[in-house]
Design a protein around this nucleic acid. Structure first.
Length: 202
DNA sequence: AGGAAGATCTACT
DNA sequence: GTAGATCTTCCTA
């Protein structure tokens, strides 16, 4: 076995650490594309590849949950980068990673995944058979991956957490657009997705 | 008490 | 593809 190759493989299989998330959310959102998400609960393991994300800022971003100042339900956005921030929209839970520079506020919404393992379990959760309908939207992936507000504040950076994110090589073939479903959006394009990936939301 | 929300489903043209 | 209902959670009054 080639020693250099073995070494690279090891590096690419590490859990993303706090430093990764301690940057501008826009940069974190883009770099999260292609990374592997692993969800553990009871004796189950589910996993998928992140194929669509959106960046959110603090009080300068009218679409952000942090826009109106720090409250009980949104305080996680001020917290340590790499923790989970979960909130509700309509009747669905949104999966976010806390991501911001020092003394700042922000997060990245995971909008779509490409399912890897546990597909049968996801079909049961979602009550649909079509594999493309399991995780192609923020609400849908939370149902498939059994994500609820109980996970708010969990550290994705610790080995034994219920949800961790594994490093992978940087995705090159990505595209960006305005964020989806936002009434008052910023002029910047803050939605990132892998080009021609069938699991990106519509 | 009333309303809005970072979405989704269903039932259509 | 697009319109309208949905019936949860948290906000504002």
């Amino acid at each position: 076995m080639n020693m250099e190759k073995d070494c690279n493989k090891h590096i690419n299989e590490t859990i993303l650490q706090k430093e990764f998330y301690s940057r501008n959310p826009k940069k974190v959102a883009y770099e999260l594309l292609g990374k592997k998400i692993i969800r553990r609960f009871d004796n189950n393991i589910l996993s998928g590849i992140i194929v669509e994300t959106e960046a959110y800022y603090g009080d300068k971003d009218p679409a952000s949950r942090a826009f109106k100042g720090r409250k009980t339900y949104n305080s996680m956005m001020w917290d340590e980068p790499g923790r989970l921030f979960i909130y509700n929209v309509h009747k669905y839970w949104m999966l976010n990673l806390v991501a911001h520079e020092v003394n700042s506020v922000g997060g990245v919404l995971i909008r779509s995944l490409e399912p890897l393992w546990g597909i049968e379990y996801m079909k049961m959760q979602r009550k649909v058979k079509n594999i493309y309908e399991l995780t192609n939207g923020p609400g849908k992936l939370s149902v498939s991956f059994k994500i609820t507000k109980e996970l708010n504040g969990c550290f994705t950076t610790s080995q034994d957490g219920p949800l961790i994110i594994i490093n992978k090589v940087l995705v090159q073939n990505y595209d960006k657009s305005k964020r989806i479903g936002i009434k008052k959006d910023l002029s910047d394009e803050l939605r990132f997705f892998i080009k021609n990936n069938k699991f990106v939301s519509k």
